[in-house]
Design a protein around this nucleic acid. Structure first.
Lengths: 298, 298
DNA sequence: GTGAAAGCGCTAACAC
DNA sequence: GTGTTAGCGCTTTCAC
């Protein structure tokens, strides 16, 4: 022990891992770290796994399928003890790959019907339904929608689907030009809003599938001298930090990626201890009412 | 080769690392991943190291010295090939530790006089000087400042110093109550602005040491019905995404953390190839003029 | 070229 | 307890 002190000896974790067959590394794969949604997700994951002396091996994919596959392989090579995948393209290739390699795994932001892989996700269609219904409850009838890209099931298909479902449930029609797809960036929200304003009759409210795009949409309206919420109401989705930083503050759906990350981390930890896990964890959502939606006189 | 295909063999990187003495892992230590500044930094680092098949081992310290030391030790144990440290508390303990362990290292956001460690940093005092001088050139005389926390040399001391220097250089005095320290959060900027507004005579402009705090400051003014920039001008620092998302858009100092990260990554890569590196890389800054600063009539 | 063997720094399983 | 040894899965060396 004295000699350990004197020589400043430090064990070599690589050698240890070779024999113990565990690296205490969790591979986390996300498309875009610059997006606050994913950095919060990461933070949530780290907050739980670091308590148990696991560390993060981070893979950023830039939404490129090729990189996703590459990193999946790399995770295996580097012998990570577990994998958390944040909403990436989910293809059958991925599925096959993951099925072969028996590494504990959690995927967030997808539902993955047909795979026996634990997922953590919000009920996107229900949440979008609730958000749209809220708009309707405030007296809005002409409601537009800016969904995420259609290749992304949760933010594209599901949230758009929830919006459609709510409109249908209330007997409201969706005029031509009331749906304009974005690609997650604020800029795309700005442009989508511009397209929506070309419609024959202006909407009185817009449901936007992510906060960042909602900020873009609000900025377009601001730059055109259209007031939010007096002229047009805007509803976001995610409740990122930025939602409370805009003026007016954004009314949105609370879908805390930090909580997401924690749920995913906890699920993975259970798997690592060989405890049973639920196949699907649905994290609760809620409406957070701020300033960007106004009630219409009836 | 056929058998490799058939059995789906994958080499074990841990065993390989044990003999080759390289893990192709870069340890990156940052205080707060939820802060866009650091996620951009990380993205910049990844963009260069991933080209050379290095991957990220991420350590999030929550600004706690204890965790910083813990992760420094962990980096060593896990045999990372290089370390990039993003503005953390830099103490002599860290210095000693790093000196002992001959691992290639780059630190960003600090100047580290007295250590022989490569750093990449902006010239914070010059940049703050330039920002303040710009305010003065626009006719402002009563200029307040919201620096970062004083324990953080770059954002606290240096940027405050640059502001002071510019004021002095132009023969302007700094009234009592014109300097209110923040702690990097938007909320702290909001509160600091509130304190500044208690001063006997209101400033006509504020220089804020980070964009996020500047947004907080603008929000305080907005909530009080004080117009930006008509009543008070606000100048930020960093040029994060949010600076172009606010209305009015924030005039700020371009200090792109993505570029930072790239510079740090490149420096580290050079060290890994045993090429000589500059001890200090100063990344250029520039003013980005948007909407939050007005010219005062003279 | 192809094949066998040594050894990286640890842990676990033995003996004593 | 204290000491020795085998072996984790690779790379490298050296012999053939």
């Amino acid at each position: 022990m004295r000699i350990v002190e004197e020589t400043g000896f430090q064990p070599n974790a690589v050698a240890r891992s070779l024999v113990s067959k565990e690296t205490r590394l969790i591979g986390v794969m996300i498309p875009d770290i610059a997006n606050n949604f994913f950095s919060q997700l990461l933070y949530g994951i780290d907050s739980v796994i670091s308590e148990y002396d696991y560390s993060l091996f981070l893979a950023i994919t830039d939404e490129e399928v090729e990189k996703e596959l590459k990193y999946l392989r790399l995770f295996k090579e580097k012998q990570v003890d577990g994998i958390i995948v944040g909403s990436v393209h989910f293809l059958d290739e991925h599925g096959h790959y993951l099925k072969e390699n028996q590494v504990p795994l959690v995927v967030t932001g997808h539902d993955l019907p047909g795979y026996d892989i634990p997922t953590v996700n919000v009920n996107n269609v229900q949440a979008a339904f609730d958000a749209t219904s809220y708009l309707i409850s405030q007296g809005h009838r002409r409601i537009a929608c800016i969904p995420g890209p259609l290749w992304d099931p949760p933010c594209g298909l599901d949230r758009l689907g929830g919006y459609r479902k709510a409109m249908r449930a209330h007997g409201l029609s969706i005029p031509d030009g009331y749906v304009a797809e974005g690609d997650f960036t604020a800029k795309s929200g700005y442009e989508a809003m511009a397209r929506i304003m070309q419609a024959a009759e202006r909407p009185t409210a817009v449901f936007v599938a992510t906060d960042l795009m909602a900020v873009g949409a609000m900025n377009y309206l601001h730059d055109q001298g259209i007031r939010v919420p007096e002229d047009i109401s805007v509803m976001g989705f995610d409740n990122l930090e930025i939602a409370s930083l805009t003026r007016p503050m954004l009314t949105t759906v609370h879908n805390d990626p930090y909580m997401y990350g924690q749920a995913a981390g906890q699920n993975l930890l259970k798997q690592l201890r060989s405890e049973p896990v639920e196949r699907i964890s649905t994290v609760p959502h809620s409406l957070v009412i701020r300033q960007s939606v106004s009630a219409l006189p009836t």
